[in-house]
Design a protein around this nucleic acid. Structure first.
Lengths: 222, 222
DNA sequence: GATTAGTGTCCCATTATGTGAGACGCAAAC
DNA sequence: GTTTGCGTCTCACATAATGGGACACTAATC
């Protein structure tokens, strides 16, 4: 009733408030505009969230995301054993290739970046931790959607998800062979060339094996 | 009505659910036990949270923190300009001292770790990002509570907050001189000695100055 | 096979709960 | 002084959350 989309219950509205605060701090009035909630309601929800540390206020009284989200975010990251297991392998991969590297998992009809390290170059691809990307484009997306073994063990895409960006991805599989994640290297076409797989493919595949053994997915190391 | 403490509204109960899931994944029945909520209510809340990505379910249907918290956590971290500004100074401090380093800010009657790098030693202090520590103990706590200038510019504590752990902290101040954060180095007494300030004090103070100029708190660099 | 105990899911009458227009106090701007 | 904006709080109202209990299902136990 009233609200356009995605918000009828208290909880939905509360999430709307958090969403609104995700990108920048907001005064109450701004919050009202962004969320479309009545002033009194927005105020009540925001202060309720503040009571739980999910929202905090700066010196000027503006609302912003609270510190509780730091620990919850950290805990959510820990809930993916893969992400921690992949840390060192990703660091090595980043150093080997010099480009940004990511670890994606499927989550519903999207893919989520659960670990990422950025390239040290000035010009680089940036995929922030927690970013939700479509399952319809990008080499990692194809890894996560197709159950097939690729002949090479990796898949490349050039300018598919975003213009000027190329990427190579390899599947991370569990003991039963199911794809549980995708490791990716991505960077500007100018550096990666139009055959990124040729250059980075073997590194990515090796990183995937490394992650599997580190996470204990494949039993014994090899 | 009903619930013991801290939960009467939907929102409070929803937060209870998130709290319950912070440390481990839970089946519905376990969630019921932990939160004290009726089965139907716990189920409704958990699935509602799932709809928003704040909760997800593994293959067995167990509830755990969702991927949405990754991006919210990331956004919450970005909301502290200090944390990002401090990144390089903290890395240098960690390398100089070899010990774990943290950046704390006051949040209500607690202090929160908004940035941390762990020592590379096997034996090390671990203060996870987002950790909430008391304002009553530890060198960083004293920095955040006392507005005074210390003669040395740093404060040390030995075995105060936790046995066997010593730490040195220095204040990070804004343009008006108000303490906005505390930089800390902490490690096992065996390595830091009982006078950690002597060894690390100047490094910590220098890091604090570095963070101030990087964050633009002090106007011109110096 | 029948029984029991344990899941997760869903319904629906009841009422507790959140609602939001409007009043209020306080600044700063005009 | 007046006006305009802000955040905050109240309170009669009815919407929206509630939770006991029914249901389907699986896995032990008899």
């Amino acid at each position: 009733m009233g609200n356009t989309i995605g918000g009828v219950g208290v909880l939905d509205k509360a999430v709307d408030v958090l969403d609104a605060l995700e990108h920048c701090s907001l005064s109450l009035s701004e919050l009202v505009v962004v969320t479309g909630l009545p002033r009194a309601t927005a105020h009540r929800l925001a202060t309720a969230l503040e009571r739980h540390g999910l929202v905090r206020r700066d010196a000027d009284g503006r609302f912003m995301l609270g510190t509780r989200l730091l620990s919850l975010g950290q805990a959510a990251a820990d809930a993916w054993p893969l992400a921690t297991a992949a840390a060192s392998a990703l660091a090595i991969l980043r150093d080997e290739t010099g480009e940004s590297v990511q670890l994606f998992v499927r989550d519903g009809e999207e893919r989520v970046c659960i670990a990422a390290l950025q390239s040290l170059h000035g010009l680089r691809t940036i995929v922030p931790l927690g970013a939700r990307l479509p399952l319809s484009a990008g080499s990692a997306a194809r890894i996560l959607t197709s159950a097939d073994q690729t002949a090479t063990g990796w898949i490349e895409s050039v300018g598919e998800r975003e213009a000027g960006v190329a990427s190579v991805s390899a599947p991370v599989r569990d003991a039963s062979g199911r794809v549980v994640a995708a490791v990716s290297v991505s960077g500007p076409i100018e550096r990666t060339s139009r055959q990124p797989g040729k250059r980075y493919g073997s590194f990515v595949v090796h990183a995937a094996r490394e992650i599997e053994s580190e996470a204990g997915l494949r039993g014994v190391d090899a």
